[in-house]
Structures are given as C-alpha cells and as structure tokens.
C-alpha cells in the first residue's frame, strides 16, 4: 500500500494521464469516424457504417 503522501502525488500526475488518454482517444475517433477527407472516408467506410458513425 502507498502512504497518503505518495497517493496525493500520484493523484496529481494521474489527472494529466487521464487527459492525455482522452485526447489521444478523441483524435483516433475523429480519424476513424468523423473526418470527411475522401481518402479517409472511403477507407473507413464499412467500419463507419457498422459502428454507426454519422459520417455522410
């Protein structure tokens, strides 16, 4: 088990980790589901339909 002090320190750095993970996640989803560039849209087409992204 960690002590209170180290837990507190960990909490502070974890927030940055959560924000980083969410940001990368949103970027990936924008590419795979939302971006309208023709090449991307065509490549991701079947997957976008199967996963119900509103993409066109």
């Amino acid at each position: 088990m960690t002590t209170n002090t180290t837990t507190f320190a960990a909490v502070r750095s974890n927030t940055a980790a959560f924000v980083l993970a969410m940001t990368v996640g949103v970027v990936l989803l924008t590419v795979s589901g939302m971006a309208q560039a023709t090449v991307l849209h065509d490549a991701a087409h079947d997957q976008r339909h199967a996963m119900a992204f509103p993409c066109h």
Partner: peptide, 9 residues
Amino acid sequence: VTYTGYGLL
C-alpha cells in the same frame, strides 16, 4: 483504431 479510441476514453 475505433476500439482503441473508445478504449482510451
């Protein structure tokens, strides 16, 4: 890519 994106969230 999509499931990794949702996995990150």
